[in-house]
Nucleic acid binder design. Structure first.
Lengths: 221, 221
DNA sequence: ACAATTTGTTAGACTATTCTAACAAATAAT
DNA sequence: ATTATTTGTTAGAATAGTCTAACAAATTGT
């Protein structure tokens, strides 16, 4: 069984993988806040255990076994986040740290019970998909708000960044998953957007923010 | 901050302490399933950290700081057990293993929320008291059923053993916390007792079982 | 193409937690 | 009281995970 440390490496590898599934050792080291030699030696260890594919001076790739292990840890993380928000009344900005610890608990029963109590949710409080028990992840094909154009409408469906700071920014603007945004205009100079939603008539969202809002886009009717 | 391993040693020391608060290294080693030299070296480490009092060849004692740390871990354990039973529908025989892991989570918020959701319970599902936030433990002064005499009544209030096997034995006899037992007779030869309770007219409880049932005793009216 | 920079590797060391082997002290048993 | 047994200690080694220093390969920028 993977140690807590190994689990954290698997999760980081999963999250950092580029579209080809490759990860740099330096990115891995940075993500986990360890030195490069440390990351390097753990990658060798994971290779011995069949969880990653790796050759000297080449980027790392999770094997299918490694990918599944990682997805199952992420499943526990996201189920926990959802449980904390839906069943225990936490705010979406408070749950990451707790889930970071709970995800390492070995107890299929516990997570199945959470899943059941919530009616088998498919996304976590930040809109990220919850992998199924086989470690499969549904692909929602959401777009970044930046791709929407004036006149269109967009439903906020997930976030590309779940940091406390960003979540608090969203809280302060009353932006939640499910919020319907009308795109009023786009500023070509800095890529910022002016939108309206709910009782907010007019709000300017910077490029940085728009990039991190994942939406379903509709033609306004 | 104490590591998970150190936390487990503190908890074991707390639970093994005799009435004078003393613990043998061999008992500690056995409880934690480690060798004696391992337990010995960890005791020295805890001593350096001011959590135990210790001199060569003498029994170990928790300091007041160590005792408080231990009690706060036990608080998390028992709150978790209660939460799993009351809020998540687990059986009392299923929760120990899970709580054993959850107790190491660092998140005051999480445990305070559990406490709040349950209305600040004072005992866990096995009747053991839940230490308060200062690590203080209420002393219930319960007696073992073995001390009750024919003609008296006793309310099952806690257990001196919460092993899965014992809990399953109790489940099979429909014995729960709160069950009112009438003592019909005591067998002087083997210290077994014949009792009635609920819809059970007559049940024989061995000495071993009676010793582990902690009760409040009343004169029958 | 070659220097500068970034990225990755090796070697060697440290800490925490564990072990076994060997021995010493304390306790129990005759 | 002397031996036998149990309990506790020391020494020395192993593993997991981490580090720094030094070097090597790959990439970037003229």
């Amino acid at each position: 069984m993977a140690s807590q440390t190994e689990e954290n490496y698997l999760k980081a590898l999963f999250n950092l993988a580029n579209p080809e599934g490759e990860i740099n050792i330096s990115d891995l080291a940075q993500q986990l806040e360890v030195s490069m030699p440390t990351a390097n030696s753990m990658v060798k260890n994971l290779q011995k255990r069949g969880l990653v594919q790796y050759e000297k001076y080449k980027p790392v790739k999770l094997t299918s076994v490694g990918k599944k292990e990682a997805a199952l840890i992420i499943r526990k993380h996201r189920l926990t986040e959802m449980f904390l928000v839906n069943k225990m009344g936490f705010g979406w900005e408070e749950v990451h740290e707790i889930a970071e610890q709970v995800e390492h608990i070995h107890s299929p029963k516990l997570f199945e019970r959470m899943d059941e109590m919530m009616g088998f949710p498919t996304v976590d409080p930040h809109g990220s998909p919850i992998p199924d028990k086989q470690g499969r992840i549904q692909n929602l094909q959401l777009k970044s708000l930046i791709e929407a154009n004036p006149g269109q409408e967009a439903v906020l469906s997930a976030l590309a960044d779940s940091s406390t700071e960003f979540l608090q920014y969203l809280n302060s603007r009353d932006l939640k998953l499910g919020t319907e945004l009308k795109i009023l205009s786009k500023e070509p100079f800095d890529q910022s957007m002016i939108v309206s939603y709910g009782s907010v008539e007019k709000e300017t969202l910077s490029q940085k923010v728009c990039e991190k809002l994942l939406v379903k886009i509709f033609e306004a009717n």
